[in-house]
Design a protein around this nucleic acid. Structure first.
Ligand SMILES: [Zn+2]
Ligand SMILES: [Zn+2]
Ligand SMILES: [Zn+2]
Ligand SMILES: [Zn+2]
Lengths: 126, 126
DNA sequence: CCGCCATTGTTATTTTATAACATAATCGGA
DNA sequence: TCCGATTATGTTATAAAATAACAATGGCGG
């Protein structure tokens, strides 16, 4: 892991809310990260190796909170619109059903995304 | 449906590849649409009523190809990276399993996204 | 006719991501 | 050791996507 990747990864692991690339940049500016590309390059490498996930629906990035999240099964994210926390899960049964749907259509999937937005358990009653 | 919404919706129905808001703008410029906001406003209204879907992973928009796609079940998109076509499906069993996962976590979902990228049936052999 | 409200139009700005190019560090073989 | 290739970095500029702020229009009910 290169220095820039380490900086980005350690920052992401400290939070359970997705960060935008530019907020990562701001947070790391005093540690030598000065340009968006430095952040995006680090993020892309981290994503490639499964250490970080991109949250498509909010243009954010989170560290993977599961072990061995590599391409085994799709990650399912629950994104709270109030506290902004992201919770990551996998569900082999759902994954298998999605694969079956793709196979039935002869679609060769190389990346799968499942995201939900709504209110988390602690935000829904308050 | 307002004039701008009609323009955007009719354009989206003519294609099976997702369009970006700015390519919609370009296509409708000679019909009086001049600013991004006119497109985004129309898109938001169309999305609200389920006539159009946003494809999160590519910042694109497609007309719904199913009947009564309203909030009943989640839409599942297969996005070909070669021909760029988007195919939309629903699968009640998958939808039910995702709801069960959310319920088990006490998460109140108001929007669900499932997207796959890869090669479609016709592009994978060629 | 008048006030209300939804729709539209316009300019400017913010946010997100990449292009293009230059530089430095690393590493393996001649 | 020297060289060439690859990999990582840094920098500036630009493209792409989305929204803010504000003004003007156009029905429509009273
Ligand atoms: Zn993960
Ligand atoms: Zn919450
Ligand atoms: Zn649909
Ligand atoms: Zn295809």
């Amino acid at each position: 892991m290169t220095p820039n990747e380490t900086l980005v990864y350690n920052l992401l692991r400290q939070t359970d809310t997705p960060l935008s690339a530019y907020s990562i940049l701001d947070a790391l500016r005093d540690q030598g990260v000065r340009a968006p590309l430095q952040v995006y390059r680090a993020l892309n490498k981290l994503i490639e190796r499964g250490a970080v996930h991109r949250i498509e629906s909010i243009n954010g990035f989170v560290a993977c909170s599961l072990t061995n999240c590599g391409e085994r099964a799709v990650s399912i994210f629950m994104l709270c619109t109030k506290c902004e926390r992201a919770a990551e899960f996998t569900d082999p049964a759902i994954d298998q059903k999605i694969d079956a749907l793709a196979n039935a259509r002869l679609f060769a999937a190389d990346h799968k995304v499942i995201e939900m937005t709504g209110l988390c358990a602690s935000c829904r009653d308050s």
